[in-house]
């Protein structure tokens, strides 16, 4: 299974399943095409491209590995140095002022209208929701909340067996 040529007896061969091998090959396809085209142009560019390929492949593998690593010990050691943090916070507040004044949003930020309301004047002039609708909604929400309280595990048998200790 580990060998590329063992696929003859591999019944999964038609299924394009994603395993650990697939991502290694896919992204480099573009590079291969590039390499072939380079080979037609001149011999020098082959070796150059190969070098470039190796380098980019190396970068890609390294980055992918860094992404795939699940570092469960890091949560304590990740705290930044106080100085660096202060630096960055100051940088942010300076830039924030710059960006805010440059973005032309000198107007006060406005909350968006609720979705589904295209013309506020129509919504505002519409007759108010009838009392029966309000009652309908409140009775339904009450029923929903009651139903949620009723969600519980059906007891069938006791989970714990106690041994016959005297």
């Amino acid at each position: 299974m580990g060998c590329c040529f063992s696929s003859e007896e591999d019944k999964d061969q038609d299924v394009p399943h994603a395993n650990e091998r697939t991502p290694l090959l896919d992204p480099s396809q573009a590079d291969h095409i590039h390499q072939i085209q380079g080979g037609r142009a001149s011999r020098n560019s082959i070796s150059q491209n190969q070098k470039g390929d190796e380098q980019s492949e190396f970068t890609r593998i390294l980055r992918q590995t860094a992404i795939n690593v699940i570092d469960v010990t890091s949560s304590d050691s990740q705290n930044m140095e106080q100085g660096e943090m202060q630096d960055r916070a100051t940088q942010y507040s300076n830039r924030l002022n710059m960006v805010l004044s440059a973005s032309g949003r000198s107007r006060v930020f406005q909350p968006n209208l609720p979705t589904g309301i295209t013309s506020p004047q129509m919504t505002l002039t519409a007759p108010p929701v009838s009392l029966s609708d309000v009652q309908l909604i409140s009775s339904f929400s009450e029923k929903c909340s009651n139903a949620a309280c009723e969600i519980k595990i059906q007891h069938k048998e006791s989970l714990v067996v106690t041994f016959g200790v005297p």
Partner: peptide
């Protein structure tokens, strides 16, 4: 989160720049 969409857009510029 939706009400803050504009704000987030502006601030993300700051972070990308820095």
């Amino acid at each position: 989160e939706h009400a803050l969409a504009d704000v987030l857009q502006d601030i993300s510029k700051v972070v990308t720049m820095i």
